[in-house]
Design a protein around this nucleic acid. Structure first.
Lengths: 394, 394
DNA sequence: GTATTTAATTTAACATACATACGAATAGAG
DNA sequence: CTCTATTCGTATGTATGTTAAATTAAATAC
């Protein structure tokens, strides 16, 4: 069905534009919005009035004069409501409670079952419910209350239906988690792939509308933002860059193929490199594995330094490939591997300057703080609840 | 600057929607457009009246009744104007003259200098001008005449400025071809990368709004259509998939790296495979090289069959990588290598079913006819001239 | 204190899509 | 054949929403 535009759609579009500006700026005024958008001052006034009535926007006093009457400063009411974001990983769960601007007001990390003894879907669901309740309990009073819950999951998920297709390392398939949780908690629940959540957070916090978020941990995945929208692809499985071939005759992968990028850039790859360096038997699933590898490298252990370097080189190759194909504005690294940023970033950048062509050599690569994925999950819930904000949809 | 919408923008949007429908359908009626768009019948009438006045649309008689008055059939006036599309390759130039629906009314192929003796930019410009004049000479009379010229080029080009950055195999850098030609011919001239032109043609002719066009010839490049728009990236160099690594320790590439996809999937790769198979010294730049390789394989020559198979396998690996990253609706093959479709397609599809994950195994791969790139170049010129049609812009 | 400048609101004008009504044209029932 | 229901297209008036201009409000500069 083709789209058409009438007066209401037109107003909605303009209202959304005004709210977007307010969402991104710390504070601004009606005139300023008018000159930024080209909308008439009267129109801006009328739209802002509506947004104030809906509690999304507040007047917060007067600004500095530019030679005449002082402007009335407006700001996005970040505390109009709250959302809960959860980043489910193999060994632990990160939960955050944020306001509508995704500022964290509460956070929690909880260890869960080990690799040998993964939790059942039922238990996992109950654990998630507990986490949500704990966050709800500390949620401040607000006009719109809890807007929803967003859950980031490490695997193939169907964002539309809220069903999990496959979580490789948790051994879960066909799990109707979002509807179940939503029913239990009486709150809207949205789910998405963890790399997508990270990319979404990167976009919202930077405003950069063409970027990659590389989530490297147990597995490797990419979240792709193009034109300010998440690129999901035909079946919602775009971004599975961990299973692209970087070495046709390489290491065998859990997916059955040879030479997948993930086999050279993940925690398991690090463990393998360590073993090859003679650092003794290494368990990638042991608690604080990556942290200890970082510490060992920083302490000057040669095997660890060399292993990180090998891993960084592989990460650089895969990122170069993505740069060549998509030529984005920015690349962000996330996941446990990204915690080694100071060790691996220089090597990654060296490889990119070597492998990527012309302008792709200059695409910046940076690391985002921990909790990025959880905050992105909260952002997903917010985007679902307030259609005036950037839409998470592909 | 943020965008805002007023009544004129609204009407323009709706008018464009109406024209898009007419562009895609063979014929349709006002009511039909109304129910397809949700626009009121009166609104559609008013918009169609404007389009008829502008010669873009014609009434072509009455349709069949559905139990009442017969609808007046409308059709996009394909012959409202014409455009010239040129596909510049290493060994020859393909020129087409098309109407606004990119239906070819004249075509020409012209051999140019060999690899040993490439033409100078000046000579090349004059040759292009000759080709344009020849096409202009046979162009039928029409209300809007020649809308413009589009040129597809094998390399890095800046679509915005009309300047060539680098054409590797022609040894040309920093060539301000579009402005020069436009000045000479007194016609708007637009240029783009050949893979982008192919992708654009694939989109326009199929209506599939998320697709890849793989142009495999002397080099390998990809045109990427996402959401009905060409994805160009930050610097306009997205789609350089030929220089992604599929084998970290592989063959050295002209770009200086090791294991680029292009080194396994291009005409040169084919030549190398043949040499490895002991088919004697082979020159990839010899006239009709690919044609002769196809004929030899069809005649049952084992070395040629085996070489094509090795090439197809490499093509499959690279395509699988793209599928994993982008999960598009469709993949189209173009360029000289695609002429061997019957030989290589089964092998490519086998590799994809093996390498790609889950739903990516089912993404269709098909071949488009010759002239696809030239027609896409004409489409580029048309898109530039008539802003009511799908915009080629990224 | 007055003039000038800037901010925000009010009012009128304008553009456009929609709802409704109506005429034209047709198929199908009787 | 006639009548009725239906469909297609258009004309008219209304609703919605933006803009332009006028107005009010509030600050600065001299």
């Amino acid at each position: 069905m083709y789209k058409s535009v009438d007066a209401t759609v037109m107003r909605q579009f303009n209202k959304r534009t005004v709210l977007h500006i307010l969402y991104q700026r710390q504070e601004t005024s009606r005139v300023s919005i008018s000159s930024e958008t080209g909308l008439n001052r009267a129109t801006v006034s009328s739209l802002v009035d509506e947004l104030i009535a809906e509690q999304f926007v507040q007047e917060i006093g007067l600004g500095t004069s530019h030679g005449g009457r002082k402007p009335i400063l407006l700001r996005f009411n970040a505390n109009a409501g709250y959302a809960i974001g959860i980043d489910l990983q193999i060994t632990h769960i990160d939960t955050v409670l944020t306001n509508t601007r995704r500022e964290v007001v509460y956070q929690n990390r909880r260890q869960i079952g080990t690799a040998d003894q993964p939790l059942t879907p039922q238990t996992l669901r109950d654990v998630l419910a507990e986490e949500v309740h704990a966050a709800e309990a500390v949620c401040p009073q607000s006009p719109r209350g809890i807007l929803g819950v967003g859950v980031a999951l490490p695997g193939l998920v169907n964002y539309e239906t809220g069903r999990v297709t496959y979580l490789p390392n948790l051994g879960i398939t066909d799990w109707s988690i979002a509807p179940e949780l939503s029913e239990m908690l009486q709150v809207p629940v949205a789910i998405d792939n963890d790399a997508n959540c990270g990319a979404w957070e990167a976009f919202l916090s930077t405003g950069i509308s063409n970027l990659l978020f590389i989530n490297a941990g147990i597995g490797v995945g990419a979240g792709i933002i193009l034109n300010g929208k998440l690129h999901r692809g035909r079946d919602g499985i775009a971004g599975e860059a961990g299973h692209t071939t970087i070495s046709t005759m390489g290491v065998v992968c859990s997916c059955g193929n040879y030479g997948c990028w993930e086999q050279y850039s993940s925690e398991q790859a690090l463990a393998r490199y360590l073993q090859e360096q003679g650092a003794g038997p290494v368990d990638a699933f042991a608690p604080r594995f990556v942290d200890r590898c970082i510490e060992a490298a920083q302490a000057g252990n040669h095997a660890y330094i060399q292993s990180w370097r090998t891993l960084a080189e592989a990460l650089g190759v895969g990122i170069s490939n993505l740069l060549q194909i998509l030529n984005p504005d920015y690349v962000y690294l996330g996941g446990t591997i990204a915690e080694a940023a100071t060790i691996i970033l220089p090597e990654i950048q060296r490889v990119i300057r070597h492998r990527a062509m012309s302008a792709n050599k200059t695409v910046p690569v940076a690391v985002l703080p921990p909790q990025t994925v959880a905050r992105g999950a909260a952002g997903l819930a917010i985007a679902r609840a307030i259609d005036m904000l950037p839409t998470h949809a592909g």
